[in-house]
Simulated assay, not measured.
Amino acid sequence: MARPLRIECPAALQDVLSIAIREYAETAYPPGGSECAQVARQALMDAAEKLETDFTAHGGKYAEISRRLRAHLKAAMHYYVEQHQCENLLPLLLQLLEGQPVTAAQLTAS
């Protein structure tokens, strides 16, 4: 079994991750689509929930998520920054998806 992707970042970025994943899932895979699309949608919704649960369980320090979702998560991050016009966050979000931590100082500087 593949090692999970560890996500370490400040709380503000944790919220962005969950919101981005959910917004992307809603848009890319709306209800009533094909069975395959609904499976992808549910996997993304489950991933957003798991991130939130993991961050809570680990005192807000980190969460783990399946590496298999990385392509979907990258698409979600691109979608989010485009929709919310916060391109400055994209490098930090993509850094997280490479398994590299993001600090509060990096977030403040962006």
Rank of each mutant, 00 (worst) to 15 (best):
P4C: 07
P4N: 05
I7S: 02
C9T: 08
C9Q: 06
P10F: 11
P10K: 09
Q14P: 03
R22T: 12
R22Y: 02
R22L: 10
R22G: 00
Y24C: 00
T27L: 09
A28D: 06
A28G: 03
P31V: 09
G33F: 13
S34L: 11
A37Q: 15
A43D: 12
L44H: 03
M45C: 04
M45A: 05
M45Q: 11
D46I: 06
K50E: 14
E52T: 13
T53Y: 10
T53I: 13
T53S: 13
D54S: 15
F55E: 01
T56M: 07
T56S: 10
A57L: 14
A57S: 14
G59T: 06
G60C: 02
E64W: 07
I65Q: 04
R68L: 15
L69T: 07
L69H: 10
L69I: 09
A71V: 14
H72E: 15
M77S: 01
M77K: 01
H78D: 13
Y79I: 07
Y79T: 07
Y80F: 15
E82F: 10
Q85W: 11
Q85C: 07
L89W: 04
L94D: 06
L96F: 10
G99S: 10
P101R: 09
V102K: 04
A104R: 10
A105F: 03
Q106P: 00
T108V: 13
T108A: 14
